[in-house]
Design a protein around this nucleic acid. Structure first.
Lengths: 122, 122
DNA sequence: CAGTATCCGAAACGATACTG
DNA sequence: CAGTATCGTTTCGGATACTG
C-alpha cells in the first residue's frame, strides 16, 4: 500500500475536480486532436442532446478546461479547444484506463459473483 | 501528449468504474486501515445518512470493492473491509490527488477568471 | 447496532421545438 | 450553425422515523 494519504488533506480538500458528468470524458477525448465545432461534438458524442452538451461545455469552460471561440461569420461558427489544463486531464483518463485494464478480470469476476447471488436469492 | 488513446477502446469500454458517488472516496479512505463497522463509518463520514451509506456500501460490495461480514451477536455487529480490488482503488485516488496538487494553482486561477467575468457581466 | 421505509427536494439527463 | 426554452423523467442525496 506504500505511503498513506491523509483523508482530510487529500480526499476532502484535494479532489475538487468533478469531471463526473456523463459526457465529460468523451469531450476531452474528442478535443485531443484539436479544436472542434459544437456540431462536430454533437454528432461525435451521440446520443448527447444539444442542451446537455452546451451545459457540459459551459462548465468545462468555467473550470478552465476548454476555450470557446466564436467567429463572426454567417452561418455562425464556434470552436471549442482544450486548454493546457484541459489537456492535462488526459493523465487522469490514462490512470483510470490503466487501472481498469489491470483489474478488468477481477471486476468481471466480482460482478459475476454478485449476479449469481442475486439470482439464487430470487 | 505522448501516446494516444482510442476513444472507443478506452473511454467507452475501459472506464466502467464509477466510484462517482459522493462518499465513495471517503469510504475507501476510511477502510484503508482495516475493517470498520457500519456505525463507525456513519460517524466518520459525517454528515452522511444511514440510507445513503448503506446504498454506497451495497454498491461497492456488488462491485467487489468491499466485503460485508455479519457477526451473530447481540447487539448486531457488521464489519466492512476492503478487498484486494478495493485497496487497488487507492491508485486512482492517488492519481487524482497528484493531478490536483500539480494543477491546483491553474484551477484556482481559472475559477477566479471565470468569477471575474461573471461579475462584470452582472 | 445496523440497517430499512417513506417522503422530499435538487440535480442530471433527455426529447422536442424554437430562435438569432 | 449554435445554441436556448420548455417540459418530463430519472437518479441522487437528505431528513426523519421505524424495526429486527
Amino acid at each position: 500500500m506504500s505511503e498513506r494519504l491523509s483523508t482530510h488533506e487529500c480526499v476532502t480538500d484535494l479532489l475538487p475536480v468533478h469531471l463526473s458528468g456523463k459526457w465529460d470524458d468523451q469531450i476531452v477525448m474528442s478535443l485531443l486532436d484539436g479544436p472542434r465545432r459544437f456540431g462536430e461534438l454533437l454528432t461525435a458524442l451521440q446520443p448527447v442532446t444539444p442542451k446537455v452538451l452546451a451545459a457540459s461545455l459551459r462548465a468545462m469552460q468555467r473550470d478552465g478546461f476548454v476555450t470557446r471561440t466564436a467567429y463572426d461569420e454567417v452561418p455562425a461558427r464556434v470552436e471549442y479547444e482544450l486548454t493546457e489544463l484541459g489537456r492535462s486531464l488526459l493523465d487522469l483518463l490514462k490512470a483510470r484506463c490503466a487501472w481498469t485494464k489491470e483489474h478488468l478480470a477481477d471486476l468481471r469476476a466480482a460482478r459475476a459473483a454478485s449476479d449469481q447471488l442475486a439470482l439464487e436469492s430470487a
